[in-house]
Nucleic acid binder design. Structure first.
Lengths: 351, 351
DNA sequence: CGGCGCCATGGGAACGTTACCGCGATTAAA
DNA sequence: TTTAATCGCGGTAACGTTCCCATGGCGCCG
């Protein structure tokens, strides 16, 4: 018995036990052709007898494929990104691949470090929510890449997957109009973020289609946080405005912050103020009232990103940018003013 | 120029450019001794010139250390587990290691598949929230392991990290007593879950210390979900009980569900019913009222698990089970009855 | 001044796997 | 029946790295 207990069995151990060469053992185990059924079965039996498990490091070295994918996101603890990670992980596992997960915390330096780690680990491809503005060394040796998120649009020559902001905004605005809020105020993110511009552009297009002057919309900016939304909502309420106030927040966290500000001001949502968010984070379900929002398909985005990455790895550059449709989740933070004040352009009167 | 653009540069490319042997190049790059500063600098310069990046697959194969850790959790999209993952990932990155993340969905078969993948990937160790009851093949070849979560207590001979349920329960009950709720009702998980027994035992111990008969506590069981908590709360309210009702839920989701049930019944939290949860999920912050809860240190648990795993990998079996302290987060779902009804054992009267 | 030892370097093997090639045997085709 | 083709199998090289050992040069000490 040459098999020591502390050493992991290799394919030669299997071959010896089966009485064949390691070449034959490899053929049997890889499911290759040119092998007798009887021999294959003998090898397979020997493999399970010694507890053989193929060494993926060695396979990866020989074949140049590590069987691993990289995922670099701002923060895995953020519910949206966790959802994306889950989708990516499921799709990768389905294809027999593993996922290396990293959080960049919106820091370009951290991101660069993680990317270097990914390249060193010889991942077969990477899914990245880009923070940095330049990726010179990213594709220097052709690491297949798919970007995710709206910041990915800064890189038109890299395949990417994101939510369809135009469709999402349309979804939200249509519902607002249906409920009798044709000209909602907007709470947007910082001007530096690309997503802000996308969101605003979609609003403009929608207004134009409905012959509404986008200029009449109240707009407040804030950080993409609860506190940012709270402050923005305070400023919004401070503006002299009569009647019911409807708000479309570009982010659920901000929407929840806005809800808090409404409560702080002694008002009631949805009676005095209607709020609709954008993201679909779980917290919106437990707020009171439940937050009506346009949900991004985080999991689907993760899945599609992996699928796109497979195309990229196989050098099938079919698509460049995929927009995943969002869906409306109604929970009760929108007042229905349509019966009381049908078809008015400006803000409707208080119920 | 023999360097093709599509081939990743190896250490021999570096060595050739620097005019040394690959052994010397390796010495220079690994920071080993026995090398001239001048030679080292020349090699380092050559390495960056050709864009050399050490192949971790090859390193892992040669050294037996892949530089990767595995993390198997029920669901990365669950906020608590996402937090754990974040902590583990940060601590691993800090040590220069990568994290392979998997979600088992509480399915033993899926878990087994992921563990096999981990072993094949030759991870240096794994952090696992165990679902299965048996792990025969887990340590057959000595894969270093640290378990996390309360289900880990089923495996006393495996190092594990979990939250200190006894301390958490004490924290919650002490606060309840301070607020004038000495004998709260309990909403617990299914009887099959180990965490339920731990929670209940801690409650019993605390009651005994305070000379309260644990038998007088109302108890309802439910699934660890919003719906489970909602149903349990309904049953709790259906019991003939006068005065203010205080509830300690063993899980934040259930606590939020209980809050919904209270609202559905036309009652008010905290005026009519006090609710305290256990977990510390973000959603509790946005509920109305904000959910007072005992928060598990998810991120810390992840970090400590990685640290424990390092000890395990280096065969330093110091500790076996680490209990991480929880902390109380007060948000307003507890009514303060202490001034109105100080020091009463049974349920206090309505305010 | 000579021998010994240290130190910088180079050569080669090994980690575990798979691809390629060669060889013998069995079978099909002429 | 003879030849060619196919098929099953074994040997060997190669992936990129690090470690061990050998070698040669130089300095130090006796």
């Amino acid at each position: 018995m040459s098999m020591s207990r502390n050493r992991r069995p290799t394919i030669v151990d299997v071959a010896e036990l089966a009485g064949v060469s390691k070449s034959t053992a490899a053929r049997a185990l890889t499911g290759s052709t040119n092998i007798t059924d009887e021999t294959r079965e003998r090898v397979v039996r020997a493999a399970s007898a010694v507890g053989y498990e193929r060494n993926h490091l060695a396979v990866g070295m020989r074949s140049g494929r590590s069987g691993m994918l990289g995922l670099v996101m701002p923060d895995i603890a953020n519910p949206f990104w966790a959802d994306v990670a889950r989708g990516a992980q499921d799709r990768a596992a389905q294809a027999g691949m593993s996922l290396l997960v990293f959080s960049s915390d919106w820091d370009p330096d951290v991101e660069a470090t993680h990317l270097q780690t990914l390249r060193r680990a010889r991942v077969d491809g990477a899914i990245i929510n880009p923070v940095s503005d330049s990726f010179d060394d990213l594709d220097r040796f052709g690491l297949p890449c798919v970007f995710i998120g709206s910041s990915a649009e800064r890189f038109p020559d890299v395949s990417s997957v994101g939510s369809d902001i135009a469709q999402a905004v349309r979804l939200g605005l249509d519902r607002l109009v249906q409920m009798g809020h044709p000209a909602p105020a907007l709470i947007l993110g910082p001007k530096s973020r690309l997503a802000r511009a996308r969101f605003l552009r979609a609003v403009h297009e929608h207004c134009v289609e409905r012959d509404v002057d986008p200029g009449i919309l109240d707009i407040e900016d804030g950080e993409y946080t609860v506190e940012g939304g709270r402050e923005a909502m305070k400023r919004l309420m401070a503006r002299a405005r009569v009647g019911h106030l409807a708000v479309f927040a570009a982010n659920d966290m901000m929407a929840l912050g806005a809800m808090m500000a409404v409560r702080d001001a002694g008002l009631d949502c949805p009676r005095d103020v209607s709020i609709i968010g954008f993201d679909g984070i779980p917290s919106g379900e437990f707020a009171w009232p439940g937050l009506t929002t346009v949900a991004k398909p985080g999991r689907d985005i993760g899945e599609r990103a992996v699928e796109g990455l497979f195309d990229e790895i196989e050098h099938k550059p079919e698509h460049r940018r995929i927009y995943m449709p969002c869906r409306l989740i109604e929970r009760g933070s929108l007042a229905d003013l349509s019966t009381h004040a049908p078809k008015r352009i400006a803000g409707a009167g208080r119920v």
